[in-house]
Design a protein around this nucleic acid. Structure first.
Lengths: 281, 281
DNA sequence: AAATATGTGATTGATTTTGATCGAATCGAT
DNA sequence: ATCGATTCGATCAAAATCAATCACATATTT
């Protein structure tokens, strides 16, 4: 597999962020390029103040938004698949709320072609990622800003949300439980998203398959509030039955992998993703 | 499968937007056209500022706030001086509102040492620049987000501001006029800052000397609302008299030269002798 | 139908990136 | 401090990619 320079550097950067430390030798080995190239890449990243060079390799510079970036890299491809599916279901001239999690974050770049879209968000990181095109209106929620998560929560955020109705809420969840509903590991996010869902005209749940395994601490909402689940592979039979019994539509990729990026899906290795050749959906 | 040129370019563009980068080879392979054609398409898209070319392919272009940077560069040193002066006047455990202009922006990095500070802001740009230290609480105002200015305005912002009182408002202005008061070139900012000033316990005006010359279009507030003016050099006599008559405290660097056009103050401590022989401008 | 315009693919020379080599610098252990 | 083993940085040839050009096919206009 050959990468462009940018792709390779991006890959190296995520390696640095994931593990704190990388070695030139290991990188050269894992990406199948020469050590000279790896050194050039590391030098370039260091010049951009993205990493810090150390003897034998490199390590990350600051811990500031490490947690988010590390989280975002986890199941990255699965989240992208979910994001793309969700984007396809969003029409022009709609109003949507997007939560501040990493899954919904992947949705942002896919919205560049929409027109007349209104996006409500409490995450600065998401807003920065949103396209700056005339057709898209962005509404941010204020509130207590949390630098590590780059989002706003608290009474002010809730109050702002209370001024808004009729949108479609797109939320992720850290965990799912049949009897306890959607859960998050962060209390304030959970509270805010609950409010967002309650005011929404409809709510879609965006989760990758890993979320079906591990429930989290704080409840967001019950299953009654959910009208659609968008995920990256077909749910297990018991989940399919559970969701269908509650009249919740489940959406996942229809076995057609987009032509250009078939081999990318191997990272998380979801159950049988047939790498078909060029087939349009 | 045959595409028209436009269809092909749309397809390529969405590939670039969805994946972060694409390679010429893969695109040529996937769409079944020659690499020359793909390069022409990429070039065309790049000419339209839709993507960025990189060696081996293309990637989506990063959001750049060029306009903001260009503006911030103007009178940069003067703004830094004003920012530092203002920071020195802010005690621990205070609450301040900071406006979204470039002058107040320079204040942000100077607040690292403060403890228990609460900062209210409507500018993402500013919030990103604020130090991420435990002692500082940040409150953002939501509202209609303007990507070019990276701030939030409109009814939601005003409503959020109405929940807050008792803070000190630090605002800049694009222009000053003795009879018309503080003015801004942007209507929505002017409206929001007026609200901020009206709810504030005290208001400080942060301006560099150039603002005393040119009034702008939209009025923010009258001089009655201002309790302090922080600037980079002593005001001209008529302004000094005007401000003193209104009981407005004027603050400027002690060792600063009288108001002159052009020569910027040196970064740390300007020398007492303002007559640098090669005063070039 | 002829002429024109536009788009495509192949070729060629220029440019960029990569990999290998070698001396210099750095680290760890004696 | 000295030695041995890595690692680094610079240099250069090879490989990959790019930009320009030309010939040909297709669509559009006259």
């Amino acid at each position: 597999m050959k990468y462009t320079t940018q792709q390779r550097r991006d890959l190296i950067l995520s390696q640095v962020l994931e593990n704190n430390h990388v070695k030139v030798k290991e990188l050269a080995d894992s990406i199948a390029v020469s050590e000279a190239t790896v050194r050039r890449d590391l030098k370039s990243l260091a010049d951009d103040n993205q990493i810090k060079l150390v003897y034998g390799g490199a390590e990350q510079l600051r811990i500031s938004d490490f947690s988010f970036r590390a989280k975002a890299r986890r199941n990255y491809e699965a989240k992208r698949v979910v994001g793309r599916l969700a984007a396809e279901l969003i029409g022009d001239d709609e109003q949507i709320f997007i939560d501040s999690g990493t899954t919904c974050f992947e949705l942002a770049p896919m919205l560049k072609r929409k027109r007349g879209l209104t996006i409500i968000a409490n995450s600065s990181r998401l807003v920065l990622e949103l396209p700056d095109v005339p057709g898209i209106n962005i509404i941010t929620l204020g509130g207590r800003y949390r630098p590590d998560r780059m989002d706003a929560v608290g009474p002010l955020a809730t109050a702002a949300l209370d001024q808004l109705r009729g949108y479609t809420a797109l939320i992720g969840a850290d965990g799912l439980s049949m009897d306890f509903g959607l859960t998050a590991s962060d209390m304030e996010s959970a509270f805010l998203f609950r409010q967002a869902v309650q005011n929404a005209a409809a709510t879609w749940l965006l989760v990758d398959h890993s979320k079906f395994l591990t429930p989290s601490l704080f409840k967001i909402v019950d299953w009654e509030a959910i009208s659609r689940v968008i995920t990256d592979c077909p749910p297990r039979p018991e989940w399919a039955e559970f969701l269908s019994a509650r009249n919740i539509e489940v959406i996942y990729p229809q076995e057609a992998a987009p032509a250009v990026e078939g081999p990318q899906l191997t990272e998380t290795s979801p159950p049988e993703s047939p790498t078909s050749d060029h087939s349009q959906e």
